[in-house]
Design a binder for these strands. Structure first.
Lengths: 224, 224
DNA sequence: AACAATGTACTTGTATACTAGTGCTTGACA
DNA sequence: TGTCAAGCACTAGTATACAAGTACATTGTT
């Protein structure tokens, strides 16, 4: 378990949640790994209570399994759940981008354009970390400007299944195409072309498809 | 706060959650009502811990607000959140019913038909409670047969905003149309007509639209 | 040796005690 | 009378103690 510093205003529960998610996504806590509330809490210098609350939250999206009176574990990879996350994201993002075409004003479009401009900058400067952050931010922005923050938050909670296998997949996302996808989407929104925007988004998200069988071969034992 | 019996296998946390949701939906805990963990726990004959865990879960979908070190309250009605719930449901249900047209086998169609048959029975026998239950079950089934149970569960968690104002609205759902809507949807699925199914679902869900202004007039003070 | 019962060491679930932060009340003082 | 400050009564956040259930090892018996 890799730990980073606790933010100053962060509660114990938020810290535990952040640490657990990070470690699960980056496979420092591998699928199937047994989790003990006691062990985790002493590792993080917390009591069981905040750790337990974090585990309960993670179990809601089935990334952690809790067996009452027996133990807890990082969930094995259930490919159907990954597919659910992909499906949900695809459906909602397409609907939101279509909605954005109808409702987005000048300010919103400018915000999106600013974001993409920054992406171009970090693409040239080879800063994949910043780029990933801006990518997430771009999609979050689309939900925000259409007033669907809560929907985003719910969708985001299940996305961890997808994030985990993305981090397993060695194939990096082709950043160049990603950024130009974003550019095209913003242009479609500015032009208020809903059908085009939806189509572009669908194509964009399809780039993240990951070969299940290859992963299964490389990491047997991580799968359900 | 109205309490019903605790199920035998139910944990304290699950019981607290069920009670809180029921009372919020049926306005026994009105919007804006201050909640005290101590008060709630003694009312439910539990300690603070399981009650607190339930409140945290409800705060995730913003139906309960927790102000650290100050207090908690049932959230006022935020119409934008209601709209988010409606939007999310509409988008996902339409996508799922379309998917069902592609993937549903004979067994799945039979399950749906059985459900609708029961709806017809309870419609004739004027049993609105059973009918409501079957209505929920019908929609849950659509997600189940397409392998999207987790998506349903997440969607369902935000639906409470919608359920609350539905219970405020005196206008009962026209059960007759509801049942015939369901019939038509099942037929479209059996005929594998995705476009029709989607259109029918959209029309079906639009029946639940509620007049915001009328509610605002009737219940000022419940709104944000 | 085979097997059954029991003890033990774990787990999560719940209750309770303590910490720290908020806001209001109350009272002293100018 | 007005103002400010100390204290009190509440809150949620956290730590710890205890309860209840599970799995496994160990021991005693046949």
């Amino acid at each position: 378990m890799r730990l980073t510093e606790r933010y100053s205003k962060e509660t114990g529960r938020e810290y535990a949640l952040r640490m657990l998610k990070d470690n699960i996504i980056h496979l420092d806590l591998v699928p199937g790994k047994l989790l003990s509330e006691n062990e985790l809490s002493s590792e993080m210098n917390l009591s069981r209570t905040p750790v337990r609350e974090a585990l309960i939250e993670l179990s809601k999206v089935k990334i952690v399994e809790i067996y009452p009176q027996k133990g807890s574990a990082v969930a094995l990879i259930d490919y159907n759940l990954v597919e659910e996350a992909r499906f949900m994201r695809n459906v909602l993002e397409c609907a939101v981008v279509e909605l954005a075409c109808k409702t987005a004003g000048e300010d919103a479009v400018r915000e999106l354009k600013d974001n993409v401009k920054l992406q171009e900058f970090y693409l040239e400067n080879r800063s994949p970390e910043q780029l990933l952050k801006l990518d997430d931010e771009f999609h979050r922005l689309l939900f925000h400007i259409t007033g669907k923050d809560q929907v985003y938050q719910l969708m985001d909670s299940i996305t961890i299944h997808f994030d985990r296998i993305r981090s397993m997949s060695l194939i990096a996302v082709k950043d160049l195409k990603t950024v130009s996808d974003h550019q095209a989407i913003v242009e479609a929104i500015a032009a208020k072309d809903g059908d085009l925007a939806k189509e572009l988004m669908d194509k964009h998200l399809s780039r993240y498809k990951i070969d299940e069988e290859a992963l299964r071969r490389e990491y047997p034992g991580y799968f359900l």
